[in-house]
């Protein structure tokens, strides 16, 4: 069974027989790098150490500052920021609604700008400052936008809500909240299937007019 494994690193012909992860390890000059004798290498392969070593090489070290907390992580290059937040950092406030940049549920701030975290690979965000819904309030004191969403009932099921709020804050910061129509236009990347749209507009307008710091 083991020998039939034909997993390939990206860019390799996946059908080729001799590029399995195990063979890759055996043939690789990495052998010297890990300072193993061939005999030891075979033993290591049998113990699936090859898997583990290959895995380590497939991962990239990244540094993320999320809500003011620094994280050093090792992630696969294909892992999205959204999945890293949700699955590795247990920051599940950021939601997955489509995974394709079509719904806005995953909106976070990267260096202050709103971004769909499902369209952002973790490696692209390395070294950047990320704010998620969990980092918006100051302790027990809610952000004015969170207060306004509560007051205006800017949600029902609450699933799109973190994305809406992150987007709404950015919408004001960008200077795109100067009229009801402008807010609608610049909030159209955040779908709410429960249909809280009018209430969301009211919440954003109140925060904008209240001129509180966002």
């Amino acid at each position: 069974m083991e020998d039939e494994k034909d997993y390939a690193l990206p860019g390799f012909d996946t059908e080729a027989k001799d590029n399995s992860r195990r063979n890759f390890l055996k043939q690789s000059t990495l052998l010297t790098a890990v300072a193993l004798t061939p005999g030891t290498a075979i033993k290591a392969a049998d113990m699936r150490l090859d898997e583990k070593i290959a895995e380590a090489f497939e991962k990239m070290p990244i540094k993320l500052e999320v809500n003011g907390v620094a994280h050093s992580l090792s992630v696969e290059p294909r892992a999205t920021l959204l999945d890293i937040l949700r699955e590795q950092l247990d920051l599940t406030g950021t939601k997955k609604g489509c995974d394709h940049g079509q719904c806005g549920a995953c909106t976070v701030h990267i260096d202050g700008h709103r971004v769909n975290s499902c369209l952002t690979l973790g490696v692209m965000a390395s070294g950047k400052k990320i704010t998620t819904i969990e980092g918006l309030a100051k302790g027990d004191e809610l952000h004015p936008m969170q207060e306004a969403f509560l007051k205006h009932d800017g949600f029902q099921c609450g699933y799109c809500t973190p994305g809406q709020i992150m987007s709404a804050v950015a919408c004001i910061r960008e200077g795109h909240a100067n009229s009801e129509m402008e807010i609608r236009e610049y909030m159209s990347g955040n779908i709410c299937r429960c249909g809280a749209y009018p209430n969301i507009v009211n919440a954003i307008q109140e925060v904008k007019e209240g001129a509180q710091a966002v």
């Binding site: 949700r86 920051l91 599940t92 406030g93 950021t94 939601k95 997955k96 998620t132 819904i133 969990e134 918006l136 309030a137 809610l142 969170q146 969403f149 509560l150 007051k151 009932d153 949600f155 609450g158 699933y159 809500t161 973190p162 709020i165």
Partner: peptide, 17 residues
């Protein structure tokens, strides 16, 4: 106002996944 509203606007409400 929604009794679970605070959990929803702070990202603390936990959905199935």
């Amino acid at each position: 106002s929604r009794v679970d509203g605070r959990l929803k606007v702070t990202g603390q409400a936990k959905y199935s996944a």
